[in-house]
Amino acid sequence: MLTRRDFLARTLMLGAGLALTPVVGAGNRSPLLLSASDDGNGGHFFSAIDEMGAPRFSHPLPDRAHGIALHPARTRCAVVARRPGTFVDLYSLPDGRQLQRLHNPDGRRFCGHAAFSADGRTLYTTENDFDGRRGVIGVWRLRDGLMVRETEWASGGVGPHEVLLHPNGSLVVANGGILTHPDRGRDKLNLDSMQANLTYLDSETGAILGSYGVAAELHQLSIRHLSISPDGRVASVLQYQGPETEEVPLLVLHSPGDGALQLLRLPEGPERHRNYLGSVAWDLDGRWLAMSAPRGSRIYFYHRDSAAWADPVTYSDGCGLYRDSLPATFLISSGAGGVTSYCPEDGSWQPMPDRYASRQHWDNHMVVG
């Protein structure tokens, strides 16, 4: 059996590249790591790199982007503007050809994330209905090769951020609870009354299947980002809008049918993570969970079976997370530059060697497609 250490040694002999998760349903082509990035001159890009960190393509963007939604066949992706955003770009894979740019309807702003339906013919976008003071999910359908807006659904809360398709066919929405208005930029307008929740929607009708919030005394916890394990366990990481020194739980675990959210505290205090988690990812088999605290340059690891925390690691401005191709391994990207693979079981690091990967300033999220 090939162990991780055997794999690392073998890979190093071949040039120190990472083993990105193989692509399913996209032929035998090599997988690509996809992420928004900035260069040293303040330019904004959608970039793809190979397992060595070398660039495959890089497209300039009108503004900073945030989340990347991958088509189930991995033949295209949607790149979503950072909130409050005005564009979603669609690209073909692996060539990176731009297919379409979606624009926000009047009275709406994109909120950073999107998700495709199981058949890839529908795109769901998180949006802010700023005059209606509510969150919505934009529903875009494929017609004659183009995505066309068909309708929108209430997101079940305020400030929806990430949306994912659950293995059971429902949509999972992280309603962050924070009210904003484009005339006020990213100002948070309701911190005294905010209330986040995790909401499940029927992906065909938009009907709310369940909604789960936090206790009243923790109402300033904002539910932001999501990851779903192979068996359907939802993990969400939070950002606290209260005092930075107050100790609060920052990780949520939940499965459809559970009566309430399970909230967990990190193994370190807010002096290390500053009550702000940026990304979350399950590993390949759903036993390990990684979460990033970019403001504290810390990465945390939770073992689901033992309900125990591994030793956290320091990684400068590390935020982007994605499962690597072996269990208990994660890809980590940095806003300061660089992408690496890390294993919390043995503490081994495997940086991408190409200078391009270390030169670009990677945004908060990435996927392998």
Rank of each mutant, 00 (worst) to 15 (best):
T3F: 06
L12F: 05
P31I: 00
N41K: 07
G43A: 02
F46P: 05
I49S: 15
A54P: 13
A54R: 09
P55D: 00
A65N: 05
L70V: 15
P72Q: 06
V79I: 13
P84T: 11
G85R: 02
R109I: 03
F110H: 10
G112V: 07
G112C: 01
F116E: 02
T122I: 14
D131C: 03
V136G: 07
V136K: 05
G138C: 08
V139H: 10
D144K: 00
G145R: 01
V148E: 15
P160C: 12
V163F: 07
V163W: 04
L164P: 02
P167A: 09
N168W: 00
K188M: 11
D192W: 00
N197Y: 00
L201F: 11
G206M: 05
G206T: 06
L209D: 01
Q220Y: 01
I223C: 15
R224N: 09
I228T: 11
S229R: 01
R233N: 13
R233G: 13
Q241K: 14
Q241S: 06
V248Q: 02
L261N: 07
L263A: 09
L263P: 08
L264M: 14
L266I: 09
Y276E: 15
V280F: 04
A281S: 12
W288P: 01
L289Q: 02
A293H: 10
I299H: 11
I299F: 10
D305V: 04
D305S: 15
L321T: 10
R323W: 07
L326M: 14
A328Y: 03
S341F: 05
Y342R: 12
E345I: 03
D346N: 15
Q360F: 10
V368D: 09
